[in-house]
């Protein structure tokens, strides 16, 4: 009996010192096989052009994209509105506006809240679809638009032919 107890003690000590790998979710921390997505754009948008592509997250095969933060800024408020498009689908029907962060002076721009305000988000897209931000100029003058998208790719283990936006993807960790 004491032998069993002692053996159990050894097992307990062994179990106590086990190192358990905690799976960090791929949408909060970049996994080992993750790739960076840090894309910035500074573009002039002409008036009367309707919705035009402003920033596109490039497609990489067999990769899913997690967009973690984004920020867009303009010169003054209500000069432009934006929308996310995944494939041919609007992510949100209503276009959004962002807080302006840059003032136009006579011969230069001045960043007001520095740098561009980042808005936390979570956009999960898969490889087959283009993910982009479109912009529409609401004024009769040319407007400069500055945008940043920050996040990471992580690999999808699924077949690219069977990918739909509704599917989930397992987190990937590096097994030790």
């Amino acid at each position: 009996m004491i032998q069993e107890a002692l053996l159990a003690g050894a097992a307990q000590r062994a179990a106590k010192n086990l190192v358990i790998p905690v799976r960090m979710p791929s949408y909060t921390d970049i996994p080992f096989w993750g790739d960076p997505v840090t894309i910035t754009r500074a573009r002039p948008v002409d008036p009367g052009g309707g919705w035009v592509d402003f920033l596109e997250v490039p497609v990489r095969n067999l990769n899913a994209r997690v967009i973690y933060r984004y920020g867009i800024t303009t010169e003054t408020a209500n000069v432009a509105e934006f929308r996310w498009i995944l494939g041919n689908t609007l992510l949100s029907v209503a276009p959004f506006t962002m807080t302006p962060g840059i003032e136009r002076h006579l011969d230069r721009f001045v960043v007001h809240p520095y740098p561009v305000n980042l808005r936390d988000t979570f956009i999960f897209a898969k490889s087959k679809y283009r993910l982009r931000i479109q912009v529409r100029n609401l004024t009769i003058a040319q407007q400069y638009v500055w945008g940043i998208v920050y996040g990471w790719y992580y690999p999808s283990l699924e077949s690219p032919n069977e990918i739909t936006p509704q599917e989930g993807i397992d987190d990937t960790v590096r097994d030790f």
């Binding site: 790739d35 840090t38 894309i39 500074a42 230069r108 001045v110 960043v111 520095y114 740098p115």
Partner: peptide
């Protein structure tokens, strides 16, 4: 792997004071 751009929006100030939009030498 990644590609990003920035713009000189105000040439008359130091980099840490808003010369670029998205980053600088200290941001």
């Amino acid at each position: 792997k990644d590609q990003w751009e920035d713009m000189i929006i105000d040439i008359g100030v130091p980099a840490s004071d808003g010369k670029y939009v998205f980053a600088s030498d200290v941001k």
